[in-house]
Amino acid sequence: MFTSTLTIAAVLAALIALSEWLATRTWLRHFGAALLVIVLTAIVANLGVIPTYGPDTPLYGAIFTYVAPLGIFWLLLLVDLRSLGQVGGPTLLLFLLGACGTALGAAAGHWVVGGADALGEQHAALAGMFTGTYVGGSVNYNAVALEYGVMEDAALYAGAAAVDNAMTTVWMVVCVTLPRLLVGFWPKAENQEERVAHGPIEDDGEVMRIFDLAVVIALGIAAVSLSDVLADSLKESAGLDIPSVLILSTLALVLAQLPMVQRIKGARLLGLLAVYLFLAVIGSLCDAEALMRMGELAPVLGVFVVVLVSVHGTVVFGAARLLKADLETASVASQANIGGGTSALALARSLGRSDLELPAILVGSAGLALGNYLGFTMVGLLGG
Rank of each mutant, 00 (worst) to 15 (best):
D153V: 08
T342R: 04
F130C: 02
L119T: 03
I72Q: 08
A62P: 00
L226M: 12
P90N: 09
A214G: 09
Y148E: 07
Y66I: 12
A330H: 09
Q86H: 14
L40S: 00
N140G: 07
I242L: 11
V215T: 15
S365M: 02
I217W: 12
A103T: 14
E296P: 12
A155Y: 08
M167V: 09
W186Q: 08
L362M: 10
L59D: 00
I8K: 00
S331F: 12
S233A: 12
Q122G: 07
T26A: 02
G101L: 12
I50M: 02
L253P: 12
M129N: 04
L93K: 12
E194G: 15
G367E: 03
V112F: 05
F278Q: 10
A124V: 12
L219V: 12
L35K: 01
D56Y: 00
Y60S: 03
A320W: 01
P259W: 07
V176K: 03
G364P: 02
V332Y: 01
T250Q: 02
V303F: 04
T177A: 10
A319K: 05
A336H: 04
A17W: 11
T24E: 15
G105I: 10
L156G: 05
I247N: 00
S334Q: 10
P259L: 10
C175F: 07
L92N: 06
R321D: 03
R195D: 10
M292H: 13
A42C: 01
Y66C: 06
A108W: 02
V176T: 09
A9K: 00
A103S: 15
A33Y: 08
K235R: 15
C286G: 09
L381G: 15
I264N: 08
A143W: 01
V300A: 11
A42I: 01
Y53W: 09
L96S: 05
Q335I: 08
Y276T: 08
L327P: 06
H30S: 14
A197N: 04
V37I: 13
S225H: 13
V316I: 13
E236G: 05
V37W: 06
G266E: 14
V303M: 13
V176C: 03
L119D: 09
R349W: 10
T133V: 14
I361G: 05
V363S: 01
V315K: 02
T41C: 11
W27C: 08
T102D: 04
A189D: 12
L75G: 07
V379L: 09
V275C: 05
L84Y: 04
A13S: 08
S331M: 14
V311I: 14
S244Q: 04
I16F: 03
A366G: 06
L279E: 07
A369L: 13
G371N: 07
M167W: 03
P359S: 02
G313W: 00
A274R: 10
T57D: 02
A360K: 11
A348K: 00
G128P: 00
V49I: 15
V379R: 12
G88P: 02
G318E: 09
A62M: 06
R263G: 13
T102G: 05
G54E: 04
A366I: 06
G239D: 02
V261A: 04
A107I: 14
